[in-house]
Design a protein around this nucleic acid. Structure first.
Length: 484
RNA sequence: GUCGGUGUAGUUCAAUGGUAGAACGGGGGACUCAUAAGCCUCAGACAAUGGUCCGAUUCCAUUCAUCGACACCA
């Protein structure tokens, strides 16, 4: 199969850290990236779609220890849980799943380290660690309250002096600012670009990129020093290029990183700095091209914008939603009801309301009423012809604004319901059959168009509608049953 | 504390220096092809205070509320 001449597109999610079960925030990110990937495929691009799991680090090591299993057993179990999202969320089956424990990733991360080292951007220095004996964990300065661990205020923080490798982040300030200035769409939405600009503008500190192996054995060994393992940055972030063959298959790498004019990264707002500054500096350090777009999502919150947490009991489990409403219902909600780029509350109540109003009463009901009229009054399937995605939907998706795109589709659904009311083909059929059939045919073409528009958003539903049109048949069971 | 964002109907959002729009939810109506769905229709809002202006929801200031950044937490 020759793909030499077609356009290329590379999109990736962040790799979630596997210290807990998949949550709705990642499900949202995954679904959105999938919609963009599917859309690009429909537009004729060859698409590389990457996701995976971040599986190293002290927290995972400790959790495995607590459960008395090996870290590898622990991460295997979690990798499976995250892989299970692919069918659950209706993700393209050809998505590439990169684990940071994969052999090729480990090699890639080590080569990346060596290259940055060779280029003079890695050095060793002493690093003071805040260690809480109560948590048995290192603490960041920002995690401390009045110099103490908030969970163990009775204990003193121990300051441990150890040697770490550092990355010369500070020298990239101007070059990063340059990227931001030359690429006004580099970070989407714009206010997040401003945020990262002001962060970089204030000046950058080098960051620590290794840990002593004696304290944290669960990581990728630093290739130049077997006493150290890599800290998360030089491990997890490198997956974006290890996934596409760097450095073992440079032809593949060039296809997906250079011919695409850069990777598109989806991430949550808590990942802005890593993706938009640290990772970009790392790419510069390795003489690799920077990313094309970094799309920042808001958080899914509980009712009233309150942070979701297990203790508040306001978390949403994607498994539960899909079990009750189906994959496409969740995809619909993610695309249209959760604001792109901003925080949005998500409650089961809100979900049910949106489902009933727009999927059961809206799309599902429209397909039923149109196809019933078609089946009863037209002998052969309607010739629907060639349908292209409309211009305004294309524009919305180019801006990664799935809400705007789906709004356009639902406007069309509303217009079709209004048209049926206005033209009343179900009544006209008794007096002017020819005219009524003509209207019904137009309606069938209309829902076929909607099916085409929905291909990337609700693939399963899109297929169902196309099939019904081709068979000139009303659905045996409603597409989306009303929920009470 | 410093810097920045936001505050509009019950809810989620939109627009605008000059009668504030929508969707969902709620009330009413006529219809029946459809999942008691769809259509029509009614009610309902500019956080507070001051200022600029002929006129402010929109600009400015202050207050209150809320979110974020201020780095090595992923």
């Amino acid at each position: 199969m020759s793909v030499l001449n077609s356009k290329k597109f590379y999109i990736t999610t962040t790799l979630p850290y596997v210290n807990s079960d998949p949550h709705i925030g990642f499900a949202m990110e995954f679904i959105r990236a999938d919609m963009i990937a599917r859309y690009k495929k429909i537009q004729g691009f060859d698409v590389f779609f990457n996701t995976g799991t971040d599986e190293h680090g002290l927290k995972i090591f400790k959790k495995a220890e607590e459960r008395g299993i090996s870290p590898q057993e622990y991460v295997d179990e979690y990798a499976d849980k995250f892989k299970a999202l692919i069918p659950l969320l209706g993700i393209s089956p050809d998505v590439v799943f990169t684990r940071t424990t994969d052999e090729h990733h480990i090699k890639s991360a080590q080569e990346f380290w060596k290259l940055c080292d060779k280029n003079g951007f890695i050095y060793k220095k002493n690093y003071i660690i805040n260690y809480c004996v109560g948590c048995e964990l290192e603490k960041a300065n920002s995690e401390l309250v009045d110099g103490k661990c908030p969970d163990h205020t009775n204990l003193e923080i121990e300051y441990i002096d150890e040697e770490n490798y550092f990355f010369k982040f500070s020298v990239f300030q101007n070059r990063l600012m340059d990227i931001y200035k030359r690429n006004p769409e580099f970070v989407i939405p714009n206010h997040r670009l401003n945020e990262i600009k002001s962060f970089v503008e204030r000046g950058l500190n080098d960051f620590s990129i290794s840990r002593l192996k004696t304290k944290m054995p669960w990581g990728i060994e630093v290739p130049t020093d077997s006493n150290h393992v890599m800290y998360v940055w030089f491990d997890a972030l490198v997956n974006y290029i290890s996934a596409i063959g760097w450095p073992s298959d440079m032809e593949k790498f060039n296809t997906w990183q250079k011919d695409t004019s850069g990777m598109v990264q989806y991430c949550g707002k808590d990942n802005l700095r890593q993706q938009a500054s640290m990772w970009q500096a790392m790419l510069l350090a390795a003489d690799l091209p920077h990313s094309k777009n970094i799309i920042i999502d808001g958080f899914v919150t509980g009712s009233g914008g309150i942070k979701m947490s297990k203790s508040l009991g306001n978390t949403i489990d994607p498994n539960e939603i899909v079990a009750e409403y189906g994959t496409d219902a969740l995809r619909y909600y993610v695309a249209r009801e959760i604001a792109p780029f901003e925080d949005t509350p998500f409650t089961k109540e809100m979900f049910k309301d949106a489902y009933n109003a727009n999927l059961a009463n809206g799309l599902g009901n429209l397909v039923s009423r149109v196809m019933t009229m078609a089946q009863n009054n037209i002998d052969l399937p309607v010739n629907v012809g060639e349908v292209k995605i409309s211009e305004n939907i294309v524009n919305a998706i180019e801006k990664y604004n799935l809400q705007e795109a789906t709004n356009i589709i639902w406007e069309k659904i509303g217009e079709m319901d209004a048209k049926i009311q206005l033209t009343q083909p179900f009544k006209l059929i008794k007096t002017d059959k020819e005219k009524a059939v003509e209207i019904i045919k137009e309606l069938v073409v209309g829902i076929y168009e909607i099916a085409i528009y929905l291909e990337a958003i609700l693939p399963e539903t899109s297929d169902k509608i196309k099939k019904l049109v081709k068979q000139n048949k009303k659905p045996d069971i409603p597409l989306f049953l009303r929920m009470e």
